[in-house]
Structures are given as structure tokens and as C-alpha cells.
């Protein structure tokens, strides 16, 4: 069972969370209407083997969105932060 340490709630089973993909993608500013920027953000993703920063929401807990660093090769979690704090970087 994959475990995620929610900064709010502690270590929980991944079944309490929902997954929402790559957290390295930077959402274009709301006012941006450039088709290319949005196309890249919505449709183009890397599929790395190894460390990956990704969004998870603790839907069955505090409902906070998190940035989780997970190794896609080993399924081990290296770190977890609230997305609203910037999620790292």
C-alpha cells in the first residue's frame, strides 16, 4: 500500500487521496489566451521513470492539494508539501 504523509493529517493510505498528475506543469496565468501555452499545459506531459512531482488531493481527509514527490520506478514517496505553499521549487 502506497503511503502519503499528508502535512495536515499524517501518514495515510493512498486510497484516501486522488491523483491529478504532473505538478511540474505551470498553469498559464488566467488572463493568458495564447493557444500554444494552454495546449502545452493541458496536453503535453512527460512520463518520467524516476522522481516525479505530482499533485494529490487528500479528498477523504483535509481536502488539501499536495505536491508529492514520488519515484515512479520504485513507488516510494520522498516528500509531501501543501500545494498552496508552492509545493517546493
Amino acid at each position: 500500500m502506497l503511503k502519503i504523509a499528508c502535512p495536515g493529517c499524517g501518514v495515510r493510505n493512498y486510497t484516501e487521496f486522488r491523483y491529478a498528475g504532473d505538478a511540474n506543469k505551470v498553469r498559464p496565468a488566467h488572463q493568458v489566451r495564447d493557444l500554444g501555452e494552454w495546449y502545452d499545459y493541458v496536453f503535453l506531459f512527460d512520463n518520467p521513470k524516476g522522481p516525479h512531482r505530482e499533485y494529490w488531493q487528500h479528498v477523504l481527509g483535509c481536502r488539501q492539494w499536495l505536491v508529492v514527490e514520488r519515484d515512479t520506478a520504485t513507488n516510494t514517496v520522498q516528500g509531501t508539501r501543501f500545494a498552496r505553499d508552492g509545493g517546493g521549487e
Binding site: R18, A20, R27, H30, Y55, Q57, V59, R63, Q64, W65, F82, A83, R84, G87
Partner: peptide
């Protein structure tokens, strides 16, 4: 309902803090 709530929270907590 669940999808919309989650989406709204996503926008508020990641892009529009």
C-alpha cells in the same frame, strides 16, 4: 458534485492562491 468541488479547490490551492 465531487469532481467540481475538487476542481475548484485545485484552482484555489495551486494556481489562484
Amino acid at each position: 458534485a465531487a469532481e467540481v468541488a475538487s476542481r475548484l479547490e485545485f484552482l484555489l490551492q495551486t494556481a489562484w492562491v
